[in-house]
Amino acid sequence: MEHNEPYGRVRAFGNQLIEVHIWLREELEQLREDVDAYLDGHGGLPRKLQAHCLTFCSAVHRHHTGEDGGAFLVLADQFPELRPVLEELKRDHNMVSWLLGNLQKLLSDLGPESDPASIRAELDGLSSLLETHFTYEERQLVSALNAVSRPDWDVSKPDFLLVPELD
């Protein structure tokens, strides 16, 4: 659909959400691979892992903060039936934030004495929660986001749709 067709740009918001989730999934997978390589004695420096983790964690935080403080308010207003879903997703955001904090702490202390099992367990937990969260969010919100009318989002992407490498 072209952007000059009625609702052409608006319908892209749900699709853009999926694109952001794909990017975040890819970044998490790359972080997991880098951590595994390091823990197996084949990877780079802990400092590089910490920087990658910080970039990833910041991107997830900005995405979720943008949803909670912007997109979810718009959706709750335009689609009141989604309010219970949005509250559930906000609870997920709090759990993700807590797990990201744990991961950052583990990676900031990364060294030869680090426990590989605890680091991998933290990454596994975060990966599982994010995958479930993203899948649920996409199933529940993409159609509504595609129907939202927000001219200000046409002019400037909201925070929850920004991807550092692309924007």
Rank of each mutant, 00 (worst) to 15 (best):
N146P: 00
H93I: 10
E138G: 01
Q104T: 14
A121E: 11
D92F: 05
L75E: 04
L99M: 15
D159N: 11
D109T: 15
V74I: 15
L82M: 04
H133S: 09
D152F: 03
F160Q: 04
F79E: 03
S118F: 00
V96W: 03
R120M: 01
R150W: 02
P158Q: 11
L89H: 03
N146D: 05
L126S: 02
V74P: 01
D124S: 03
K105S: 13
K90Q: 09
R83N: 02
L110V: 08
W153G: 01
S97W: 00
V155C: 03
S97H: 15
R150D: 08
R150A: 06
L103Y: 03
Y136G: 10
T135A: 04
F160I: 00
L103T: 13
S118Q: 14
L107V: 14
R150S: 09
D152K: 08
E87G: 07
D124W: 00
P151R: 05
M95L: 14
V148T: 11
V85S: 13
L89M: 05
V96A: 12
D109W: 05
D159Y: 01
A117G: 01
L86I: 04
L89R: 12
E137A: 02
L106V: 11
G125C: 08
Q104L: 09
V148A: 04
F79H: 14
E88P: 04
S156D: 10
S128I: 05
A121M: 12
D77W: 00
P158S: 10
P84D: 13
D152N: 07
Q140Y: 00
L126D: 00
F160S: 02
E88N: 14
G111R: 15
P80L: 11
V74S: 06
S118H: 02
I119Y: 01
H93L: 08
E122P: 08
E88V: 06
E137T: 03
I119D: 09
I119W: 01
L123Q: 04
L75K: 11
N94S: 13
L130F: 01
P158V: 14
D92R: 14
A76R: 15
V85T: 13
L103R: 09
K105P: 07
E87Y: 06
A147V: 07
P112R: 15
L130W: 00
A76Q: 05
R91T: 07
Q78S: 10
S149A: 07
S97N: 14
G125M: 12
R91D: 08
D154L: 15
G125Q: 15
V85I: 15
P116C: 07
N146T: 10
L89I: 12
E131K: 14
R91K: 05
A147D: 10
P80D: 13
P112L: 11
S156K: 10
R139H: 06
E137N: 02
P151S: 10
L100E: 03
R139E: 15
L130I: 01
L107C: 14
R120W: 00
S143A: 10
N146H: 05
S114A: 15
D77V: 05
D77G: 12
S118E: 14
L130Q: 00
